[in-house]
Simulated assay, not measured.
Amino acid sequence: MASGEKGGQIDLGSLSSQQLSQVKKQLDEEVEHLTNSYGNLRGAQHQFRQCISSIASGVAESTKGKPLLVPLTPSLYVPGELSDTEHVIVDIGTGFYVEKTTQDAVKFYNGKIEELGKNIKDLENIVNGKTNNLRVVEEVLRQKVLASSQGPQGGAQAS
C-alpha cells in the first residue's frame, strides 16, 4: 500500500498495470520536480553564503577608496570605488533594496540560510517519502507484469 495525497491508502494490488504505470509516471514527475526545487534551494543558500563572504572580504577598511568592479547584473560590472565600509545595500527580494550595516546584513543572510536549511530538510523528507512510494509502486508493477507474463503459461500447464 502507498499513502495518497490526502493521507488515504491505496491498495496497489487492486490497480491494473496501466493504472500502476500512471501512478508511477505521476510519482516520477513529482520526484523530479521536488528534486529540482531542492537544487534551487541549495543554490539560493549558496548565494547567500557568497553574500556573507563578499561582505567579509570585500567590504573592509583596506578596500576603502580603491578601484573595484561593482556588479549591476550577474554578467555586467561597472568600475567603482568603495566609500563606506560600514553600510551595504541588501536585496531583500522582489526588487527591493535596503541599506543595512554590515553586521545587520550578515545577520539577515544568516537568517535566510537558516530558513532555507529548514525548508531543505522538509523537502528532503518529502522527496524520501515520494521515492519510497515510487519504489513500492515499481515493485508491485514489476510483480504484476511478471504474473501476467507467466499467467497464461501456468494456466495452460494446469489444464
Rank of each mutant, 00 (worst) to 15 (best):
A2C: 05
G7F: 06
Q9Y: 12
Q9W: 13
V23S: 03
V23K: 14
K24C: 01
L27E: 13
L27M: 10
D28A: 10
E30G: 02
E32L: 13
E32H: 10
T35D: 12
Y38T: 05
G39W: 11
R42W: 11
R42D: 15
R42S: 12
G43V: 01
G43L: 09
A44V: 04
A44E: 08
Q45M: 13
Q50C: 03
I55S: 02
A56H: 11
A56G: 03
V59P: 02
V59W: 05
V59F: 06
A60F: 00
E61I: 00
E61Q: 09
T63F: 05
K64E: 05
K64Q: 08
K64N: 03
K64H: 01
K66G: 01
P67G: 01
P67Y: 06
V70D: 01
L72M: 06
T73R: 02
P79I: 03
E81A: 02
S83D: 05
E86C: 01
E86V: 00
H87P: 01
I89N: 12
V90A: 07
I92R: 14
G93T: 10
T94G: 10
F96I: 06
E99M: 13
T101S: 15
D104G: 00
D104E: 15
A105P: 03
K107W: 07
Y109K: 09
K112T: 02
E115R: 04
G117M: 04
N119M: 05
V127Y: 05
T131I: 00
V136D: 06
V137M: 05
E138P: 02
E139F: 05
L141Y: 08
L141N: 05
R142N: 13
Q143I: 10
L146M: 12
A147N: 14
Q150S: 14
G151F: 14
G155R: 15
A156E: 14
A156R: 14
A156M: 10
Q157L: 12
A158L: 11
